[in-house]
Design a protein around this nucleic acid. Sequence first.
DNA 1: GGCTATCGCAACCCCCAGTTGCGATACGGT
DNA 2: ACCGTATCGCAACTGGGGGTTGCGATAGCC
Lengths: 231, 231
Amino acid sequence: MSSPDPAAPADPADAPDPANPANPADPANPVGPSAPRAAVGRGEKVRTAVLAAALAELADVGYAALTVDGVAQRAGVHKTTVYRRWKDRDTLIVDALTGQIATDIPIPDTGSVDEDLRLLARGLAAWLTGPSGGAVLAVLLSDAVRVPAMAEVRSRIFDDRLRRAEPVVRRAVERGELPPGTDPAEVVKNLAAPLYFRVLITAEPVDADTADRAATAVLTAARHGGLGGLG
Amino acid sequence: MSSPDPAAPADPADAPDPANPANPADPANPVGPSAPRAAVGRGEKVRTAVLAAALAELADVGYAALTVDGVAQRAGVHKTTVYRRWKDRDTLIVDALTGQIATDIPIPDTGSVDEDLRLLARGLAAWLTGPSGGAVLAVLLSDAVRVPAMAEVRSRIFDDRLRRAEPVVRRAVERGELPPGTDPAEVVKNLAAPLYFRVLITAEPVDADTADRAATAVLTAARHGGLGGLG
DNA sequence: GGCTATCGCAACCCCCAGTTGCGATACGGT
DNA sequence: ACCGTATCGCAACTGGGGGTTGCGATAGCC
């Protein structure tokens, strides 16, 4: 959502140079009625097609085996065109992934920790096993983590997600459902960890039942002060 | 047996199992069926050096960026020599990894679940943050998982490890420290999961304290029937 | 209908996987 | 000490993918 302009201009023909008379249509400019600059229509379609093709290739062959030529052909576009819009392979992948981080996992607030944690776990399980989670995990847990931009995307996704889930626990503590001193971050991490573990390590199927068991386990621990409660 | 041999000798002169580097004559071997096989001494040194170099490169640059030439130079050997002993890059990496699966995490039996789980978690944490764990994780959680042989190594490492840890829980149940019906596999997975989660997802440091907290959480859940105990 | 940005295309460079033939070397037996 | 042979070093090669460049073709918009 937060990519108003092409993610990786870096190209003379595409760069939004403010001093360039051929580029009065600045993205930040509110709908220039008399904008001489145009011809963005074609580019936008190409951009969308390439990004979608990149995600598909990612899910199909993974990060390492993804070839720019493959993405280009899948998008019905020439390799050169891809390189005109994106600096390199990694930039393209980061851009494709960035469009996917909007996939939110619903944060429940039913008034019951039990229900809340269960719903949270089920939402995460659904995402993990879905196409979006698959693509993100395929990249973020590959050698791509060595690319700084990839690591940043990882933080943007996981840290943000953890932070948004913490209130669920905080509210439960305030309601007296969990002992005071319970660490919200710890609870959320211990809820998510078994699901990731099954997907990444043991390669077991992750379904609603798995989610429920994870919720039960972390809830039991939290209720009895095993997650920061008490001392 | 899609992958016939983990070591993948693929080389006629590759020794089956060198019992001892200082035991070239092998006096216990009565002649053998007209097998004047010799000159294994040099090859064994090369093999060891290359395997060690591969692990080092793995830890340094990761799976995708690992080049055969890089490994060869690091081992003080020519690229051709590597290809004469290993079919391809993946075979080499699998072989290097296979030598590492012997790295055992001690399975404690102190008579106390509390202590046992704590020691188990600490052992895992130490392995995860050590060189061996780093190399294994770098590969097993990369695009390498798409290589069947890699997936097999993953199973060999993790499944076997989980299975060996289960008795710790089973004994605790028999001693009455944990409620009957407690699922050993579930306990072990929920013990390991938070540690992997922190290493792989949140990139937090994993130390003894982290291990202790994981042990406390899973122990609390298990004691109160949150991990299969009770109905 | 014309102007211009964008795209397709082909050719190119560089790096790395993997191969081959030949010459150099070190090991092990006699 | 010597010699045979297995192994290694070396250089040159193919093939594919990342990334670049110059030019011609085309599609969008005025």
